[in-house]
């Protein structure tokens, strides 16, 4: 294993000041996006929503060391909750998003409480089976979900009763950006908390954590529920931004894609989601429409190379380059 930090390298005090000043810059730049890239709002919104989703997954994969291939199950629960509520006339975006979080969290509690006492292949299988189960239920319950045709008649009212979800997607864009910002702050606080530290302890050496008196199952269930709520929020955002919910939102394909996006950027690094999701989605937007075979061929090769040669994703590579530069400077 390499010695690259999973909690980010320890910066000296001076540059931490600089970092604090630099933090709002990417956010402001993103907020200005509709000015110089008009027409790209829907894609940009998709990316923001997926970053929220990837952040929720990072809590599990990157911090708690829980590998899941069924995270879309929780995303889809949120999307369908918000979508179905709107079909039945409860159309306020924030209210339905809140309900979506609650439903996803409850789903996460039930599944997590049952699954997280297992580990390795069994746990992986259970995460997959849980999402397949939800997918099949949504697939068969056509009276509620529309089945394979997707949920019809999704319609949300204006945000705060003022900003309607417009055709260009401006409202959806800023709404998603604001939600992402709040989620980012929450996740950042969470991983810096004693709870967040203990998650990394469980990931590193769960036997030792048990030996210092840590209630491992309880911690893992709590983080699973939190992650589920955030995934459900991302699902609700998706439903609101696109005014549509499809079975894809519960699919194994989405579970796999979001994991790939996160790993591509670098898991356990907080910013990995911000790098991996846009990289993946821009590439997909450019390549997959032309020829899906080439897209999957390229993606597959990238994954294999990533695992073989560059664990840690794009951020992992960047960290190693930075470390090499710093060492050279130190030597000079």
């Amino acid at each position: 294993m390499t010695a690259v930090s999973t909690s980010g390298p320890a910066y000296p005090a001076a540059s931490s000041q600089l970092r604090r000043l630099a933090l709002p810059l990417p956010w402001l730049a993103t907020a200005a996006l509709p000015l110089f890239l008009p027409g790209y709002e829907p894609l940009a919104t998709q990316i923001l929503v997926m970053i929220v989703f990837a952040l929720s997954l990072d809590l599990l994969v990157g911090y708690a060391g829980i590998v899941t291939l069924g995270h879309a199950g929780l995303f889809g629960m949120g999307a369908y909750t918000a979508g179905i509520l709107s079909v039945y006339g409860i159309t306020d975006p924030l209210l339905t998003a809140g309900c979506a979080m609650l439903v996803a969290a409850a789903t996460g509690l039930v599944f997590g409480w049952a699954m997280l006492r297992t580990k390795d292949l069994t746990l992986l299988m259970l995460t997959m089976a849980s999402a397949f189960l939800l997918y099949e239920i949504a697939n068969k319950a056509t009276w509620l979900t529309g089945g394979e045709d997707g949920l019809q008649g999704v319609n949300f009212s204006s945000l705060f009763g003022t900003f309607a979800f417009d055709f260009r997607g401006i409202t959806a864009f800023y709404y998603s950006l604001a939600v992402l910002f709040v989620v980012f702050l929450a996740v950042r606080a969470l991983i810096a908390s004693p709870f967040g530290w203990s998650l990394r302890g469980i990931r590193e050496n769960s036997a030792r954590m048990a030996a210092i008196g840590c209630p491992i199952l309880k911690r893992r269930v709590i983080v699973y529920v939190i992650s589920a709520a955030l995934a459900g929020l991302a699902g609700a955002l998706q439903a609101q931004a696109t005014q549509f919910v499809a079975l894809y939102s519960l699919s194994f394909e989405l579970s796999g894609n979001i994991l790939i996006m996160l790993i591509l950027g670098g898991s356990g690094r907080l910013y990995g989601a911000f790098i991996g999701v846009p990289a993946f989605m821009f590439a997909q937007d450019l390549l997959a429409k032309q020829d899906p075979a080439n897209w999957f061929l390229g993606l597959g090769i990238i994954l294999i190379v990533l695992v073989m040669l560059a664990p840690g994703g794009i951020l992992g590579i960047a960290e190693r380059v930075m470390a090499a530069i710093r060492r050279r400077r130190g030597a000079a």
Partner: peptide, 14 residues
């Protein structure tokens, strides 16, 4: 933090 019972704290930075 486990010994002093604060390890379950979610929001205040360690």
């Amino acid at each position: 933090s486990e010994c002093e019972g604060i390890a379950g704290n979610l929001f205040r930075s360690a």
